[in-house]
Design a protein around this nucleic acid. Structure first.
Length: 509
RNA sequence: GGCCCGUUCGUCUAGGGGUUAGGACGCCAGAUUUUCAUUCUGGUAGCAGGGGUUCGAAUCCCCUACGGGCUACCA
């Protein structure tokens, strides 16, 4: 067993934006590395040139950065095991594929995609499935059946070929998965002769992955459950390459499922239900479609990470709030759950609310300021901080702030109809005018002073508080939202308060 | 279809032979807040089904059902 320093990698392929499931895989890798004083590295698996999407790699790197999951090695960062982009390692893989052919673990196959496709269709018509494997490979166009001379001739003639793994017959491959325990696969029952090296000169995932993990001294492969079925192939590959002694250990993470309905979480679910599935906003370079991001939706990275960490993992205690550092100290793979987890957007919001409430008012004000500026409003930091302080506990997102506070910065342009109907009575203007007058007499324009003067007057008149306060609120904010009425008065200032009362009266009269 | 993995409140989960099956989100109710929201307190709700093993099963075994993944010269 490998006892060297723990090294794990996150190995996405740049075929689009990083999905939150991918972020979670990165997170668990990161946490495992930190917990074990190991290295977390990023490797870009871009062996499929046809699926390359411009900007995807940058997106991945920026997403990890936003989440605080900085790799120790990777593209643009460097490290002694580079390059970290598989396309830049291209020259490396062919030798290993050839070695496999030489040792009899692999063979050369000349069948064209068209031919194989036809075979597949043919089998399908008979309600069977074609697989290139023992039982069919004997009759196909490959180096197992062709004389060596013929094979050489074809290659020299420039004929396209792939290199396939020669899956051994009827072997039970048993390997321990760190999350699931022992898993056994029978080679004949469940595995075919996978392509290791493509006709375009690139390795497939299987070869590149094993070669790179070996060369990069990866000790633990932590990846999504969709890879579990290919674990035996990889185990066999390590064996075939003579790397059994340093083979990494495997851990297959459960998938993140749709909030409702069947299947794994997809981009569509987010669009349909209005929650982000990507960490950052993504604009598809081809279609121009924009997908929502957690960052843009107003989530704090620490909330996003905290939520993700608890989706499929738990500390075994009742603690729910964790910083990345906190997680790094206690994370362990044996507390990863085996079954897929449905994602709950409500819980994500709840996490964000928690972190929002934890933030200092000045910090929140700093974040809110650009929002205000974007609306053409400039206000002193002091005022913004005061406003934020009053509204903080009724919000979950920085993006909620405006909806709760616009009236502090701009006078209401209209009045909520429902509220008008419910609260604005015939004698309301007269009463509010009296209040405006009494406001002129408030000594020190502070919330409690205003309240005191107001209450004294109300008691003297014998008016019901609700009858006056609700319409007053309507005048000042345009609806029935906002914090304590007297606080609103104070922050608005005496002049503005009275002016808004008068404007409302003349508008609603 | 084949192969593999899984299944505890609606959701995330604890619990791994003896528990009143615990917590969280959501939801509902009450209290506070002269609005709304917040906050607090309480409540609702679960071991997929059937067989074993055992004095005793949510827990171990088998079967069934259901869910999920894989089954590309994609990762």
């Amino acid at each position: 067993m490998n006892t060297s320093k723990v090294r794990v990698r996150f190995a996405p392929s740049p075929t689009g934006p990083l999905h939150m499931g991918g972020v979670r895989t990165a997170l668990f890798n990161y946490l495992f590395a930190k917990k074990n004083d190991g290295d977390f590295i990023l490797r870009i698996e871009d062996t499929d040139q046809t699926r390359f999407v411009p900007g995807a790699e940058e997106y991945i790197i920026e997403s990890l950065k936003w989440c605080g999951l900085g790799p120790a090695e990777g593209p643009g960062i460097g490290g002694e095991f580079g390059p970290y982009r598989q396309s830049e390692r291209k020259a490396l893989y062919k030798g290993y594929a050839d070695q496999l052919v030489k040792s009899g673990w692999a063979y050369i196959a000349f069948d064209t995609p068209g031919e194989i496709d036809a075979l597949r269709k043919e089998a399908e018509a008979k309600k069977e499935t074609f697989s290139y494997a023992i039982g069919t490979r004997e009759a196909l166009n490959n180096s197992l059946n062709l004389p060596e001379k013929e094979v050489l001739k074809k290659i020299e003639a420039g004929e396209n070929y792939v290199i396939r793994f020669k899956m051994p017959e009827d072997v039970d491959v048993t390997e321990e998965d760190l999350i699931r325990g022992q898993v056994t696969f029978n080679t004949t029952k469940s595995l075919d002769d996978k392509v290791l090296f493509k006709s375009d000169g690139m390795p497939t995932y299987h070869l590149a992955n094993v070669v790179d993990d070996h060369l990069m001294k990866i000790t633990h492969v932590i990846r999504g459950e969709e890879w579990l079925p290919s674990m035996p192939l990889h185990v066999l590959l390590y064996k075939a390459l003579g790397w059994e002694g340093t083979m990494p250990r495997f851990a297959h993470l459960p998938l993140i499922l749709k909030p409702v309905g069947k299947g794994k979480l997809s981009k569509r679910d987010g669009d349909k239900m209005g929650f982000p599935v990507f960490p950052l906003e993504w604009k598809d370079p081809k279609t121009g479609d924009v997908s929502q991001g957690y960052r843009e939706a107003g989530y704090f990275p620490e909330a996003f990470i905290n939520m993700l960490a608890l989706l499929g993992w738990n500390p075994g205690t009742e603690q729910e709030f964790f910083s990345l550092d906190g997680l790094s100290k206690i994370f362990s793979l044996d507390r990863v759950v085996k079954s897929g987890s449905r994602f709950d957007p409500e819980k994500a919001k709840w996490f964000n609310k928690h972190y929002f409430q934890q933030k200092a008012e000045t910090e929140l004000a700093r974040l809110f300021k650009p929002v205000l500026n974007g609306k053409g409003i400039s206000a002193s930091d002091d005022k913004i901080t005061r406003v934020v302080a009053e509204l903080k506990e009724r919000c979950e997102f920085v993006t909620d702030l405006w909806g709760q506070s616009h009236f502090f910065f701009t006078a209401p342009g209209s009045y909520d109809e429902k509220t008008v109907k419910k609260r604005w009575k015939e004698d309301t203007p007269e009463k509010l005018l009296a209040i405006a007058d009494i406001f002129e007499t408030v000594g020190d324009w502070k919330a409690d002073q205003i309240k005191e003067t107001f209450s004294a007057f109300m008691n003297e008149k014998g008016w019901g508080f609700g009858v006056v306060m609700n319409p007053l609120r309507l005048c000042l904010v345009g609806g029935n939202i906002g914090p304590d009425l007297f606080v609103i008065c104070e922050l608005l200032g005496r002049e503005e308060t009275i002016s808004r009362i008068k404007t409302a009266i003349s508008t609603l009269k």
